[in-house]
Structures are given as structure tokens and as C-alpha cells.
């Protein structure tokens, strides 16, 4: 349960438009920690050990005009940590559900994970199914078409990736972030509310109301929520960028 903070200082120090909470779930050994490591460090995590409890990391993404900071909670897949990790599903905006294409068992258990995530995550939880280890084609046990069908039946996005080669590793995160933005736009999610798994960053707020936020000329001039909402429409993600 250590804190792994993003290596890239410039990314870290940038301000952002949105902050989103994502959880990474799935059976032990499917490569969740490796996927995340590849995503945050652009390298394969050698000698990955079983995760103990939950590990935290973060990374900032660019999606069109928007900068999105992701708070990523890598959970342990081992059964003995289930009672602990389940508490981290609370109010997550997105879930990256990982299975191992060379392990039918890890695929067979997906429903259990999805049920938990839907029950415990945010109301409009976005789920992305990732078939990991796509580099081990010769040992494949789960066909792409089968997983794709499962994903369609369960209303989740699906893609295959390899934490080893880095293939498609960013895609699930981008896809999830984009879906969350769409949900915000559609009004299904309100970043102003705690527990939605999303919140506004300084960058977004500054665009809305720069003067009152950053000068102290008028100490009483607090941000008025209503006006903010009205103006928000202007820079909300349009269909063009999303």
C-alpha cells in the first residue's frame, strides 16, 4: 500500500480540469499492477509481486483540450484482500476490469468482479474490460470474440492490451476518461458533488472565474455555484472532441 507518485514532474505539477478516481480490479496475476506501471511509467514492471491491499498512483492525461488527472487505485486480486479492496470501490468513476487472455479462469470470474464494482462504485460507473497479456498469443485461452460478446452483453467497453509490450495500454484509461466526460456532459455525473468520483481541477475553475479565485481583493467574493454552472456549458466537452 505504498504511494507511487508519477515520475513525470511536469505532468505532476500541471493543473487540470478534472480529477477522476479509477479502480483497477480483476483476479490475482492478471497483470493489473503491470498494466498500471506501464501506464504511469512507460515501462514493464519486472518481478511484480502480489499487491498487498491497495496501491495508489496518479497520472495526468490530455483528452482534446481537457487535462484530466487520474487517481488510480490498484487493488489486490487475491481473495484474502477482498474485504479490504471492496471498500475502495466506493464512489469510483471508472473501473478497469482486467483478465488474462491466457487464463480462462480469470475470465470466468469476471461477472463476480463486475457485480461488485457496479454495486459499490459510483452510480454511473464506467467499466472497461481489458484482456491483458495479448503478447502471449500462442497460449491464448480466451478468444477475442468471446470476450467481446461478454462485454457487449454486460454493457462494458472491451479491448486487449499487453503490459509487457505496452500495446494498447493507454487506451482503456483514455476510453474510461472520455466516457466519464460524456457522462458529465449528459448530466449523469456532477463533479461538484462529493462521492461522484470526479471533481473539477483548478484549471477548469480558473477559466470560469479567475479573478475572484486568485486575487484576494474581495474577500467576500466567493464563487457562486449557480453562475459557475451556467458558464460551465461553454467549455463542456463537445461532441467534437469526445
Amino acid at each position: 500500500m505504498a504511494f507511487n507518485v508519477d515520475d513525470d514532474a511536469t505532468e505532476l505539477l500541471e493543473t487540470y480540469d478534472f480529477l477522476m478516481k479509477f479502480i483497477i480490479i480483476g483476479e490475482a496475476g492478471t497483470g493489473k499492477s503491470c498494466l498500471l506501471h506501464q501506464f504511469t511509467h512507460n515501462s514493464f514492471k519486472d518481478h511484480s509481486q502480489h499487491t498487498i491491499g491497495v496501491e495508489f498512483s496518479s497520472r495526468t492525461l490530455k483528452l482534446g483540450e481537457k487535462k484530466i488527472k487520474l487517481q488510480l487505485w490498484d487493488t489486490a486480486g487475491q481473495e484474502r484482500f477482498r474485504s479490504v479492496t471492496r471498500s475502495y470501490y466506493r464512489g469510483a468513476a471508472g473501473a478497469i476490469l482486467v483478465y488474462d487472455i491466457t487464463s480462462r479462469e480469470s475470465f470466468a470470474n469476471l461477472s463476480r468482479w463486475l457485480t461488485d464494482a457496479r454495486a459499490l462504485g459510483s452510480a454511473s460507473l464506467v467499466v472497461i474490460l481489458v484482456g491483458n497479456k495479448s503478447d502471449r498469443e500462442e497460449e491464448r485461452e480466451v478468444e477475442w470474440s468471446e470476450a467481446s460478446k461478454w462485454a457487449a452483453d454486460n454493457d462494458v467497453h472491451f479491448l486487449e492490451a499487453s503490459s509487457l509490450s505496452g500495446d494498447n495500454v493507454e487506451a482503456p484509461f483514455l476510453l474510461a476518461a472520455r466516457s466519464v466526460l460524456l457522462a458529465i456532459e449528459a448530466g449523469a455525473l456532477d463533479p461538484e458533488k462529493a462521492g461522484s468520483g470526479v471533481s473539477y481541477g483548478d484549471r477548469a475553475l480558473r477559466r470560469v472565474n479567475s479573478s475572484s479565485r486568485l486575487s484576494f481583493g474581495s474577500l467576500s467574493g466567493g464563487r457562486q455555484k449557480n453562475t459557475v454552472k451556467l458558464k460551465m456549458k461553454k467549455w463542456m466537452p463537445g461532441s467534437r472532441c469526445c
Binding site: 493543473t15 483548478d202 484549471r203 466567493g222
Partner: peptide, 15 residues
């Protein structure tokens, strides 16, 4: 002041 603002928004981005 900025801190106070930040507290009010429960928003943790740093300008």
C-alpha cells in the same frame, strides 16, 4: 485566502 478558497471547494489542485 487561496487556502481558504481551496477548503471551501474541497478541491485539491494547486495553481
Amino acid at each position: 485566502h487561496a487556502f481558504r478558497q481551496m477548503g471551501r471547494d474541497s478541491q485539491l489542485d494547486v495553481h
